[in-house]
């Protein structure tokens, strides 16, 4: 089944609404904050929808979930999901999540933020949380630019991208996020586009159920800025581009999955390894060294 078929199937299967019906997402979204601020055909809302479905299918009680965001368009996710949710400072969602998770290891902690927030100003925190294998799922919506501030070049903007601070085209080399994530120690790494909704949901389920540091990159249209400035058309045109140019290669060597402005996009689940988590290691080491003076830490 092609992704377009999948999309149509999903639309067909989604429950019909009559006026007065409760919104099917009302248990998951803060309906008193809707409408949201995202532009029509922006990809962020799609990823939130996938996330809601993933949580439901994992049967994780929403009371046990905490969503942490930084600043930016994707940084607004924490403001709309009806879980305990924290909208922190720019780039610092991951260290906040570190404290939250270590403070209460029963919480399912999810960091939901954008590429600029997680990999520019917050880049170092990503590296260290992955290195420590802290229990958290990091979902990065990558729209290749700083959209909230009006479309500046980001560390993920493909070379040649035209943005307000790269008006003559970006001459820098962007990050290859799956390669970066694998190098610094993430135990689960996947990449999809906002078109691959079922696969996004499936990967989210795997990430949520997997102990340790899991990372999902979702490439998403930014119709107002990135697509317009780089002449990709609107959000729908961009989904068509994803459809025509995505190639699924599970287990692809992450060093080969870098993204060019108009090149093929390699998607798939690239990394799935086992490694003791921060809390597992801490408990094992301290128990061995301190014996009866140490109680296994459970929060």
């Amino acid at each position: 089944m092609s992704v377009i078929d999948e999309l149509q199937q999903a639309v067909k299967n989604s429950p019909r609404q009559s006026p007065g019906d409760e919104h099917p997402m009302s248990n998951f979204l803060r309906m008193d904050r809707i409408p949201h601020i995202w532009c029509p055909t922006c990809g962020i809302g799609t990823t939130v929808n996938c996330f809601a479905q993933a949580l439901e299918r994992c049967s994780i009680p929403l009371d046990d979930v905490a969503v942490v965001s930084g600043i930016g368009c994707t940084g607004r996710v924490a403001g709309y999901v009806k879980t305990d949710s924290f909208h922190t400072t720019h780039g610092r969602a991951i260290p906040f999540a570190t404290g939250l998770r270590l403070g209460n290891p029963k919480l399912k902690v999810v960091v939901f933020s954008g590429d600029g927030d997680l990999f520019s100003i917050g880049g170092n925190h990503f590296n260290h949380a992955a290195r420590r294998n802290l229990d958290m799922t990091v979902i990065c919506v990558n729209n290749f630019n700083y959209a909230m501030t009006g479309g500046q070049v980001a560390p993920t903007s493909p070379t040649d991208s035209v943005l307000t601070t790269s008006p003559y085209g970006n001459f820098e080399t962007p990050f290859n996020l799956p390669f970066l994530a694998e190098s610094v120690g993430a135990t689960f790494v996947a990449r999809w586009t906002a078109l691959h909704i079922h696969r996004v949901t499936e990967s989210m389920i795997k990430a949520l159920m997997k102990p340790g540091f899991s990372f999902i990159e979702i490439i998403a249209p930014c119709p107002t800025i990135f697509e317009r400035k780089n002449k990709f058309g609107d959000g729908l045109d961009r989904l068509k581009f994803y459809h025509d140019n995505s190639e699924i290669i599970h287990g692809a060597p992450t060093k080969d999955v870098d993204i060019g402005l108009r090149n093929k996009i390699i998607v798939g689940e690239f990394v799935d390894i086992e490694r003791p988590t921060f809390i597992e290691s801490m408990n094992a080491y301290l128990k061995r060294r301190l014996g009866s003076d140490y109680d296994i830490y459970e929060g």
Binding site: F86, P95, F96, L100, G103, N104, L107, H125
Partner: peptide, 12 residues
């Protein structure tokens, strides 16, 4: 990171 990790822990 230190100065915000403690705030995560407080909310936990």
């Amino acid at each position: 990171a230190s100065s915000i990790a403690i705030q995560g822990a407080v909310w936990a």
